[in-house]
């Protein structure tokens, strides 16, 4: 059984609000960059960046981070790893890096992302922005910016579809039973 939990309007509103929160918390956009986690976080990071740019002047640097090599489940996962592109074409040392992902679940991806990120440099701050926080954390990690908190059961699946050209935006909860 699946039901839509966010439609296109909900998602756009959430992104707008998060963009304002990021600017407010960091008192502007100086020294700020966004890094999206492959695969779901990359398009979202791009959207957040253009939203932030439309509020405050100046281009925001955006990178993409693949965390496959940093995962802790190479031997336990059923499916085999597929490596995606990592592209962080700017220095992150001394910057405020906002990690962006679509769904925050156990927190293990974020742990891996922080390890991956620190191999690129030493950010002054790492913050976390997610579209959906679905709970069930296994590590002491929380989001600084969350689009929506959605209660789920552990076996559920949350699927976020964000097309790059904005043609399709939705989040679906697929029930585990």
């Amino acid at each position: 059984m699946s039901k839509e939990i966010l439609d296109s309007n909900d998602i756009n509103r959430a992104i707008r609000r998060m963009a304002h929160e990021i600017i407010e918390k960091n008192k502007g956009t100086e020294n700020l960059c966004l890094v999206g986690i492959q695969k779901g976080g990359v398009v979202l990071a791009g959207r957040l960046a253009s939203q932030i740019e439309s509020i405050e002047a100046g281009p925001i640097e955006v990178g993409a981070l693949d965390i496959t090599f940093y995962r802790d489940d190479l031997n336990t996962k059923e499916e085999q790893p597929v490596v995606k592109r990592t592209d962080v074409p700017f220095t992150i040392t001394g910057k405020t890096v906002v990690l962006v992902d679509d769904v925050l679940f156990t927190g293990r991806s974020i742990r891996a992302a922080m390890d991956a990120l620190t191999d690129f440099g030493r950010p002054a701050y790492i913050q976390l922005a997610v579209l959906i926080d679905r709970g069930h954390r296994e590590l002491p990690i929380r989001a600084d910016y969350a689009g929506k908190n959605i209660p789920t059961s552990f076996d559920d699946l949350v699927e976020v579809v964000l097309e790059e050209d904005n043609s399709k935006n939705r989040a679906v909860l697929i029930s585990g039973q």
Partner: peptide
């Protein structure tokens, strides 16, 4: 092709300052 695609991910790792990953 799967091996070659994966290798290009590692090629990027080898271009970085820290050329080591933990898997």
């Amino acid at each position: 092709y799967h091996i070659l695609d994966t290798a290009s991910g590692f090629k990027d790792v080898l271009k970085r300052d820290i050329k080591k990953v933990p898997p």
